[in-house]
């Protein structure tokens, strides 16, 4: 008994030391045995690491991100993010955890079109522990970040998000992901709508912010050239025992 307890404590310590730690994960979209399933026996991402997640379409990359974000819950196994066991949290706790710990960037359409650039960035603070900051403090943080990303001009910051180019929108999305200084940034193919040059620039921007915030970065990409710039490239197929009966996950 003492040995087992010591082993469990050691595992928890190891998980706490990692940004993301997954053990014996099993997820299925429904109880139907023919539906899409994802199984990962072990995955660990270190704090401050930059990881590229690659794999064919429909292989479960977005599903894995959804699980790490706490939007989806596994049927079995455990997901630890900075020592917090997500599957043991209530839905409300996971939402709060997401607001405080994660910054998320999507492929495209990252912004609420009816909000200004500034308000889109501030939105990330409104649900996190930083929601109690005063309006001017929130604005100051958002403007500082927009400045760093070359979007600080007042007229641009006050523009509606829908009026920006795709490249500008992705930079605003990055600003929103980083504004609360979350320790983990998750990006789901954020460069897919950008041309080759812009893709590289965008990854430069992500890296510089990630270094500035000392955050961990997990990014899904199909671009092997971009993936090569990361500390580590994870092939999803190598990680898990896949059972794909539906595409586009």
């Amino acid at each position: 008994m003492r040995v087992a307890a010591a082993t469990a404590a050691a595992e928890t310590d190891a998980a706490a030391a990692a940004a993301v730690s997954i053990e014996d994960l099993r997820f299925r979209f429904s109880n139907d045995s023919h539906s899409f399933a994802l199984e990962i026996s072990s995955l660990k991402i270190e704090i401050g690491e930059r990881v590229a997640l690659v794999g064919p379409s429909g292989s479960g990359k977005s599903t894995l991100l959804g699980l790490i974000c706490g939007i989806l819950t596994p049927s079995n196994g455990s997901i630890n993010v900075f020592g917090q066991q997500l599957e043991k949290m209530s839905g409300r706790q996971r939402d709060k955890f997401r607001a405080d710990t994660l910054g998320v960037i999507f492929q495209q359409l990252n912004l609420l079109p009816y909000l200004s650039v500034l308000d889109n960035v501030i939105l990330a603070l409104e649900f996190s522990h930083q929601r109690h900051l005063t309006a001017s403090q929130k604005q100051e943080k958002a403007r500082y970040l927009l400045d760093r990303l070359g979007l600080g001009r007042t007229e641009l910051a006050m523009q509606k998000a829908a009026q920006l180019s795709v490249g500008q929108q992705q930079r605003v999305a990055a600003a929103r992901a980083f504004v609360g200084a979350p320790p983990l940034i998750i990006a789901d193919e954020p460069t897919s709508a950008l041309d080759e040059d812009r893709q590289s620039e965008f990854v430069d921007l992500l890296f510089s912010q990630q270094q500035h915030n000392q955050a961990t970065l997990l990014m899904v990409t199909h671009n092997t050239r971009l993936a090569a710039r990361f500390d580590r490239v994870l092939e999803l197929a190598d990680l898990c025992n896949l059972d794909i009966t539906e595409g586009g996950r």
Binding site: C69, R98, L112, F127, S128, R176
Partner: peptide, 15 residues
């Protein structure tokens, strides 16, 4: 998509 964005920044379904 708007709802997904809200969820990504920590909004609960109740929000």
């Amino acid at each position: 998509r708007e709802m997904a964005i809200l969820r990504s920044v920590g909004a609960r379904p109740a929000h």
